[in-house]
Design a protein around this nucleic acid. Structure first.
Lengths: 206, 206, 206, 206
DNA sequence: AATGAATGAGGTTTCATTCAT
DNA sequence: TATGAATGAAACCTCATTCAT
């Protein structure tokens, strides 16, 4: 029998984390409501007391994850140009840290959420769109300041985003097992080389 | 009634392309065998005459697509160093061309095939592993020749792969609508900046 | 809608008796799960909540029937020789009574269960083997006591079993419509004549 | 490819014997038309050129088998009373010989044909009815001649039929592996004891 | 609020039969 | 006459969701 001495909030959270674990282990479609309630040690009916459907709990999970990710990305303070690189570095570090420490986030966000259905694809599209706009804005400002080399900043943003996503994805797939600081450093260097104006770059590298 | 004036091979192919279209439109899970046979204008039993199950036809589709992609990637002839960049450019062009001209390939390969189940994830992992090894080998040789900057080639490979994948993915999502040559050019420049030894790079750029 | 005021055990039994009725009416292969659930006034899913498959519920049914039949056959107390015939008579009476009162048992056991598949044939073989061993043991002991005529007790056992089965079978087919006591009496006399040592027999008959 | 140098009659027979083998191996329901045509080395369409359906070829098979069985049973010539036992013995011998030498007949007739559907059950009923009437007539005449003990000849007939059927059935099941002459002898003795007037019997036994 | 038995739409697959060549 | 690809009705089973207790 279930422990009845828990608040509604606790029960909700316990269902959410059971769902995270279940979706992370088997993917959205292979996961059955049975798996979630078994893990949460809760009866079938209880599940529907907290979430309208399997789809809805997944939605909420993905929303939470994307919020956590976005909360890692702090706006860049451009008042002191020389500190911008470190701020970018910090952003990348925080996101990478979050995701590598929570592989289930990665699994759910990069695998299960992809291609679920039109509506979900649209949500993902919007999320990535926000992220991309952010990056692109940074690149554009960098170009204006003469720090960033010329080029199609839209496409460059996509590449930068893709670089990170792929690193995380390969991490999930188990191809690579690098640590946060290695990844961050290497990605940072890649970004520097990839986008910084060569003259500036020379001064930035040790 | 179905046109019976087709060879087994043609019928097979018609089923495969109907499946490509169906999976591409709705994704693996939302696609029913009914959708495929309706599109192929074929009876239910006929489908199972050619493919054991929905899963099996999807398998074959993905195998075909990954073969087509891999066949775009020609081995680099390193005998003349100056021609290496062009060869890389050609490889990227061919892959990009294939994928942008066949958005369904992209949809199926980047969305449906991801997170389908353990077995499939493993197949994808192996595919990307082969591609990554290829890129990494190139980078390593470039480093030995002093053409490529120093750095963790494994991680850099992942970033390069991710850049491309993301461009294609955003293309599927509809975020960007760039043309092959724009993409190729920009990716090429990005790669150059990202990995080429700065001294060398200076000479390569116009 | 189904009456929800029943215990799991009751529902199980109601499904079992619906199945008995359905299999008895149409035979195993002609019977569909739909027939069973319709008779039990239960939804399709409910059926599968209690039994994994049509095959499994049939298994259980046959097991139950064979147990009921075997429970009619009481071990013979040989301490008082003169009471042995009555005990045999009682056994036959009990089995005959059970089967004639439950024609569906007969239908399922003698018709549907025969030739179902290799595994089932094996189960039947074992059941009949047990019964035959029992009869044969009795005959052997009778021979030692000089009560039973000489002869191949194995084959005689089979004949005795067959006599009973055929009586039941013809009953199912509708060829004969005898009553229990007629059948029992006639079978008993047949057995007496067939296996009892003639000298002894003379004294036993009126 | 099939050998086209065969007459229609040969092809028909080859299909029939393929069907016998298939039904005998797997039973009616587990047997697919594919099994039959594979064994007969004939195309699917050809099968339907000779037989309207799977059911029809089974019908014909069973009809043929029952005719063969019935043709073993020769009418008894009662003009010389002392030769009657031998004639009965001969009948039993012929049937037993036929069935033990053709286990597939047994398998099909005793297993597959039972409980197939109402129509078939009726055909079987009629077949057994004819056989039973035959036996009963003999018993009745025996009673009139004072050779057969008194008793319900209908039920006794069923027992005699059942004895034989069960011997054959156990043979199919593999429980017993007796030879024709052993079986015949034992069955004959059983019949003698079971039905012959005791006074007469005493003179008949050695 | 919690339970878990019941539901039934909907999906996959099979296989006897047909029919154009 | 022979072929075998094509047919499609019909059967099984699953699992997200409901609802009476």
């Amino acid at each position: 029998m279930t422990n009845r001495n828990v608040s509604k909030e606790e029960r909700r959270n316990s269902l959410l984390s059971a769902a995270l674990s279940a979706f992370g282990k088997r993917g959205y479609h292979e996961t059955q409501v049975s798996h979630i309630i078994k893990e949460a040690k809760v009866a079938r009916g209880t599940f529907y007391l907290y979430f309208e459907s399997k789809r809805v709990i997944f939605d909420e999970l993905v929303t939470k994850i994307s919020q956590k990710i976005e909360s890692c990305i702090h706006p860049i303070d451009k008042s002191i140009a020389s500190e911008i690189p470190q701020q970018i570095l910090d952003n990348i570090t925080r996101v990478t840290d979050l995701l590598l420490k929570n592989p289930l986030y990665l699994k759910v966000f990069l695998s299960d959420a992809v291609g679920l259905d039109r509506e979900f694809d649209e949500r993902l599209r919007r999320f990535y769109h926000r992220v991309l706009l952010n990056i692109q804005k940074g690149l554009n400002q960098g170009q204006e300041l003469g720090l960033v080399r010329s080029g199609n900043t839209k496409i460059i943003s996509v590449c930068l985003l893709g670089s990170l996503k792929e690193i995380y994805y390969q991490h999930v797939l188990g191809t690579t097992k690098a640590k946060t600081h290695e990844i961050v450093e290497e990605v940072y260097l890649l970004v520097l080389h990839a986008v910084v104006e060569p003259n500036i770059l020379a001064k930035m590298l040790p």
